[in-house]
Nucleic acid binder design. Structure first.
Lengths: 211, 211
DNA sequence: CCGCATCCTCATGGATACTG
DNA sequence: CAGTATCCATGAGGATGCGG
C-alpha cells in the first residue's frame, strides 16, 4: 500500500484503499464479473505483472476483493466482496463526470468494447423509463452490448443471445454521446447504422417525454 | 500529470485527470469553497509545497479549477470550475463507501472538524425529510457544524450563527456512526452531550418513519 | 500455458531549504 | 505569502525467470 494520507477523513481513507494506481481499474474489471489473473492482465493494457500482483494482494487485504477457485479447473478467480461491489456508485459517478473527456473520441488510446458496459449503465440508468420494455443491441468494434429497458429500470450487459428489437452500429464516442444526451439520433443519422425498430433506440437514448 | 493509462474508458480518463495523489483531496478542500494557497496547505497536512503547486497547475490545465484574484488584497484564490464542482457526486460516493473505515475511529490520524461537512452532507442527504424544519449543531473538537433539515432536503455547513434547536457534542466517529445509521441516539447516550430539543436531533439522525 | 517472483532502470513523490 | 530548487527515497514499468 502506498503511504497513507494519515487523515481522519472519509475521502482520504477511501483513497488509502483504492487510490493507488490501477486499483480502481481493477475494480472496474471485476464489476463486470469475476476474472482470472490473465483476464485482468488482458483488460488492463500496460499494467506490469508485479504491480497487478501487488495490487490484488492489497485489495484482498483491505477486504475489497477475494480469491476463490475458478469454476473450471483449479485456477484462481478474483471477485469483489460485497463491500467492494459498493464501489459501483462512486465509479459510475466518475464515469459520468468524465463524459466531456470521452466525447472527444478515442485518439490513440486502447479500446475494448466491454468497457462500454459500465459507462452505458452509468449514463442510461435513471433516465425516465419507457412505457414498454425494449431490448436493443449496441455494436461497437464488432462487439455487441445489450441494453434492456423496462418500466423498473435499465440494465446493460454483454449480449446474451436474446432477441433484439433493434441494433445500432456506431463509433464508441457516438454511442457515449447519445447515451449522455449530448447527441441525438437525428443529428447523427449519417454516422450510425441502424437495423430493426428505430423507435426502440429512441426509447433507450431519447427519453420519450422530454417537454 | 502522471503517465496516462492510455485507455478510451471513462474511468481511466477521469483518473488521468484526478487520479494523481492529492488531487481529489485538493478538490475536497475546494468543495467547501474557494481557498488560497496557504489555506490549502493547512487543510492538507503532509503535502509538499512543490507537489501542491504541481497539482494546482495540473488541475488548472485540465479545467477542474481556476485561479482568480482573492476578495482581499491582490492574492490568488483557487476555486472549482463548474465541471470541477461536479466531482461532488463521485467524491460523496467515495465518502459513503468509506464509512466502515471511519467508524473504527481516528487512530493517530490528523483531524479537522471542517472535514465533517462533506461526509455529513453525503450521509444525511437523501434521508427522509422531517415533517418540519430543524436546525441542529454538531460540536466536535470545539468546532460547530450546522445541519438544517427542511421538507425539501438537508444541508450541512459550518455554523453561521443562527439559532439552533439543539446541539450534540461527541467524537467524530460517533457523529459519523449516527449519520450513517449504524449507531442511534439511544445506544450512544453515555457518549454524547446533548443540549436543547432532543427531538430535533432524532429528526436529523433517526428518520421519523422507519417502519 | 498460467500465476506469479525477481531484477533493473528511471520517473515520481516527499522533505527541506531557499527566494521574489 | 506563494511558490522554486534541490536532493534523496520510493514506486512504476519493462524484461525475464520459474515452478506447477
Amino acid at each position: 500500500m502506498r503511504r497513507s494520507y494519515g487523515q481522519y477523513c472519509g475521502l482520504a481513507r477511501a483513497l488509502d484503499v483504492v487510490g493507488d494506481r490501477w486499483n480502481l481499474l481493477i475494480v472496474r474489471q471485476l464489476l463486470m464479473g469475476p476474472a482470472r489473473y490473465r483476464e485482468l492482465q488482458d483488460g488492463l493494457p500496460g499494467v506490469a505483472t508485479n504491480l497487478l500482483t501487488d495490487r490484488l494482494r492489497d485489495l484482498e487485504t483491505a477486504g475489497v476483493i477475494g480469491r476463490r477457485l475458478a469454476e473450471e479447473g483449479n485456477a484462481i478467480a478474483y471477485a469483489l466482496t460485497p463491500w467492494g461491489a459498493e464501489l459501483r456508485e462512486p465509479v459510475e459517478g466518475l464515469i459520468r463526470w468524465s463524459t466531456p473527456l470521452m466525447t472527444r473520441g478515442p485518439g490513440g488510446d486502447h479500446f475494448r468494447a466491454e468497457w462500454l458496459v459500465l459507462p452505458l449503465s452509468a449514463l442510461l440508468t435513471g433516465k425516465p423509463a419507457a412505457n414498454r420494455s425494449w431490448t436493443v443491441g449496441i455494436a461497437v468494434d464488432g462487439v455487441l452490448v445489450q441494453v434492456r429497458t423496462t418500466r423498473s429500470g435499465t440494465e446493460v450487459s454483454p449480449h446474451d443471445g436474446r432477441d433484439l428489437d433493434a441494433v445500432i452500429r456506431a463509433d464508441a464516442a457516438i454511442v457515449l454521446g447519445l447515451a449522455a444526451g449530448v447527441l441525438n439520433l437525428d443529428d447523427t443519422r449519417a454516422l450510425v447504422d441502424i437495423e430493426g425498430d428505430e423507435s426502440a433506440l429512441r426509447a433507450v437514448f431519447n427519453p420519450p417525454t422530454r417537454s
